[in-house]
Design a protein around this nucleic acid. Sequence first.
DNA 1: TTACCTGCTGAAACGCGTTCCATAGCAAGA
DNA 2: TCTTGCTATGGAACGCGTTTCAGCAGGTAA
Lengths: 312, 312
Amino acid sequence: MATIRDIAKRAGYSISTVSRYLNQSGYVSKIAAEEIQQVITEMDYVPNDIARDLSKGHTSTIGVVVPHLRHPYFMQLMTSIMEAAFAVNDHVVMLQSKYDAQLEVQYLEQLHRKAYDGLIFTSHGIPLTQLAAYQKYGPVICCEDPRGVKIAAAYTLRQEIYLDAFRLLQQKGYRRIAMTLSRPEPVSLTSQATMASYRQVFGTSPAPELIQTGVANYADGYQAAAAFVQLAQQPDFIFANSDDIAAAIIQRYQDANRPVPPMMGQENQLSGQLLKLPTIDHHFKEVGQLAFQLAYNGQLKQLPVQSEIIWR
Amino acid sequence: MATIRDIAKRAGYSISTVSRYLNQSGYVSKIAAEEIQQVITEMDYVPNDIARDLSKGHTSTIGVVVPHLRHPYFMQLMTSIMEAAFAVNDHVVMLQSKYDAQLEVQYLEQLHRKAYDGLIFTSHGIPLTQLAAYQKYGPVICCEDPRGVKIAAAYTLRQEIYLDAFRLLQQKGYRRIAMTLSRPEPVSLTSQATMASYRQVFGTSPAPELIQTGVANYADGYQAAAAFVQLAQQPDFIFANSDDIAAAIIQRYQDANRPVPPMMGQENQLSGQLLKLPTIDHHFKEVGQLAFQLAYNGQLKQLPVQSEIIWR
DNA sequence: TTACCTGCTGAAACGCGTTCCATAGCAAGA
DNA sequence: TCTTGCTATGGAACGCGTTTCAGCAGGTAA
C-alpha cells in the first residue's frame, strides 16, 4: 500500500505539501497540486484512516451500548442516534451489553482507551455513578433521568407521563389495573417510575398478582399473560410495557377463549396501530438525537423530553 | 494521558518489556511484571487503541451497510452479524446508504482507507461488479446471489423458495395473485426473483394492476392496498413482501369494509404470528452469521442458505 | 571446554499521517 | 531602500503502540 511518503517522493514534493494538498489546508501551488494529484491517481493512494485518527487523537466514532435489539426502545434510539451521527459524518458502533456489568465496564474501558470519542448508554446494569466516573475519559451519556448524578443525559420524563396515564385510567373508572414490567422495580427506573406513579394516583400498591416482571418481548408477554388469564377476579385494565406485549396478552386471552380486558401499550408500535390500542409515545427519536449531540459536543447537560399519550 | 513510555520510564524498564507485559507475550520476569503493574495502576494507564490499531494494521471493526433500518430484513441481518462479531470481540459499525451510490462508494473508499477490516453490504444500489472491484482492498461481502460475479456472498435462495411458494399457491387453486414489491424489478433482485418465479409457475406475468412496487413498510403497504381494494375484479390471493405489509393490507381492506383476500407475508414477523398469516422465513440469522464469518476470515466463498415456507 | 538453549531486557525501527516551525522568493506599501 | 506580508515548501517532531533483533546472564548437554 502506498503511503503519503511514497507520494511525496514520487511527486518530488515534501510530505507536508502532500498532506496540505490532501486536506486542502495551507498553501499548495496549482502546479504542485496537479503533480501530486497525478501521482495519487497513478498509485491509487488514499490516506490511512487509522494513522489519521492517531495523529488527530480521535476516531469520529461513538459507541452506543444496548442490552439487545429485541426491544423496540433500543431500536428506535439506535436509529435516531445513527441518523444524527450520519449528518456529521460520524460513525456509530453498536455495543451489546445484555445488562452484563463486566461488558459495560469493558466498553467504558474502551472509551478510556480512545476506541470511541463518546459513549451512549441506552440502558445499563451498573450504577449510574460508575458511568459518571468515566466521564473524565470522554463523554458518557445516559438515557434516563440522572436524578442528581452528575452525568450527561437525554431522557423521557417517564414519571410525569405515567402519572398522566394513571390519572386518565382513574378518571375512566378503572380500579383493578394489571401491569407488565421489563425488569423488577429496584433495578429498572422505568419500573420504579411506573409503580411510583401508580401509588401516587391510586394511593396503594397494586395487588401482587396483578404485576408481572421480566417481560421484555412478545414471547415473554404471552407467557406472563397466562397468570392474568387464570385470575378469578380479572383486572379491569392492563397496562403493558409495550404494544407488542399488549398484543401478546390479547393473543393469550383469545387463545384461552376469555374476554379480553381493555388495555394500553407503550412505544407506539405497529402492533398497537394494528390493534388500535392506546399507547404512550416516548419520543425516542428526539432522545436519540439529543444523546448524540451531547456525545458529539461533550457537553454535560441533562435534557428531558416530553412523552405523549395516544388514546384510541 | 499516560503513555507506554511514561510507564516504562517510571517503572525503570524499557517500552518493550512493558508492551510484552501488557500483551502477555514473550518473557517478563515476575518482579518486572509486578513493578510495571504497580505503576500502571498508579498512573491509571490503559493502552491507546488507536495506536494499537495503527501498529497492528487493522481495526477489529467491520462495517455493515444498510439502506435503512425500517425493513426488518436489515434489522435481522444486523442483529445476527453483531451477534457473530460480538463472539470474537469485533466491533460493528452501521453505515446507512439509503441506496445512494455516492454513499456506497464512500463506504468502499473507507474500506480502502482501512477504516474497517471488512464491509458487508446487506443491499446495494451500485452494480455488484463495482463492489467486487473493491475486494482488493479488503473483504467485501454481499447478501444476495452473486450470479457469477466473483464476490464473497451469503444469501438466501429466493428464487427457489418463491418457486415453491407459487407452486403451492397454484396447487391450492389461486390464479389471480396480487403482489407487493419493495423496489421495481430491474433494480431489485428480490423483485426479479419473485416475478421470474411467478412467470415460471404460471406461464405469464401477473396483470399490471395486481403489482404494487415501492412498498417497504407498513405505511407503504396501507397506501398500496388502496389500489387493490378498488379493483372490480378482486385478487384471490395477495403475496406481500413482508408480514407487516400484509397486516397493513388487511387493515386497509377492513377499513374499507371489504372482504379480505387470503394472503401470505414474508420474514416471519410478529404481525404475521399475530394474524396467523402464512409466511416465508428466509433464515436471515444464518445469513448474517455467514456474512460475518466471510468478512472476518476474508474468504471469497459464496454461501447460499435455504429458506422455509411456514403455512398456517 | 565448547556449543547451545532458555529467561529476560532494551534499543531502535516501524506503522502513517498531522502539524509546528523555519526558510525563501517576491510584490506591495512606507 | 527597507519593511511587511503573502505564497510555497520542506524538515522534523509528534501521536503511541508493536515488533524485530541483538545482547547478556546462567545452565546444561556433548
